[in-house]
Design a protein around this nucleic acid. Structure first.
Length: 276
DNA sequence: AATCGTTCCTGATAGC
DNA sequence: TGCTATCAGGAACGAT
């Protein structure tokens, strides 16, 4: 499941390929994944646009075009991007294929088809990200703000970490890992955390995400839902996972079995001895 | 305003 | 073995 580190990995790989490319044709095999528009409109609008830059905000991938419009892609659970210098390799799960004037193409593959694409232009530009919270790896990341937003939230801290309007980019794997490293029980209410615990989160959130970027993400999962970055490249952070998907396995610190619970329909994994 | 439950989607898996 | 029911979960959405 692509979270901030996985999306950042893909964005860095895409930059090397996409900047300067001009869209020639867009083949849409699953129109429902294009939000608020029709396949015909997408095809018409995107033709001849030149990609000037590729960026990330939270878990969103952004293509900025020469006319200042932007294409925003969210991979959700199983979205993948496949780059080809020549013709596209057809795949059962190809949902939208971008062909470029250079002859290269980029295929958006998505097994579960939960991913979303949207084109923004003019006044709508950047409105989509207004609701998103602080970026943990940006200069906006500061302990005073983290203290403020935790102290005013009644959410349990695990759900807080997943709430994109609070902190942008953390998903289920890293939320669990961050709480383990911070010795915080996932069911603790955000507004009950001590100053020391908020300090732990302040350090561990960017630290875990940055380490995961260095490892090019986490390739954990079953079969076709396993994460791969551009062109099916495997990440390396799965070897460093301490609690996620380790139910009943021994805690790496104390040896007691890792517990699994559900919070708002999401699995949480933790050590009941180490996390208070 | 903040929080909660439901929905989308399909391969993997558990249980019979 | 083969079938069926359940699960995985990010975020939009409507309800509270």
């Amino acid at each position: 499941m692509p979270e901030l580190p996985e999306v950042e990995t893909i964005v860095r790989q895409l930059r090397n390929k996409l900047i300067g490319q001009i869209i020639w044709k867009v083949k849409i095999l699953r129109p429902s994944q294009w939000k608020a528009t029709t396949a015909n409109r997408v095809r018409r609008k995107l033709k001849n646009k030149k990609i000037m830059s590729v960026n990330r905000r939270a878990k969103f991938i952004i293509f900025n075009f020469d006319d200042s419009s932007q294409l925003v892609i969210h991979l959700r659970m199983t979205g993948k991007l496949i780059w080809s210098e020549k013709n596209s390799v057809m795949d059962d799960y190809a949902r939208t294929i971008f062909s470029f004037a250079s002859g290269a193409c980029l295929s958006f593959n998505d097994t579960r088809a939960l991913g979303a694409l949207e084109l923004f232009e003019g006044a709508q530009k950047n409105t989509w990200q207004k609701k998103l919270g602080i970026e943990p790896l940006s200069e906006n990341w500061n302990v005073a703000e983290l203290k403020k937003i935790t102290s005013t939230s009644k959410l349990d801290i695990k759900s807080f970490l997943l709430d994109q309007t609070k902190i942008a980019g953390v998903g289920n794997i890293y939320a669990n890992e961050i709480l383990f490293l911070s010795d915080i029980h996932p069911e603790r209410r955000a507004n009950t955390l001590t100053e020391k615990e908020v300090g732990q989160l302040y350090q561990n959130i960017p630290q875990v995400l940055q380490l995961a970027i260095d490892k090019m993400g986490t390739s954990l999962g079953h079969g076709k839902q396993n994460f791969r970055s551009l062109n099916n490249m495997e990440g390396g952070f799965q070897d460093m996972i301490r609690v996620y998907d380790r139910e009943n396995e021994p805690c790496v610190k104390c040896g007691s079995p890792i517990i699994r619970i559900k919070q708002k329909g999401r699995s949480s994994y933790f050590c009941r001895v180490c996390q208070k």
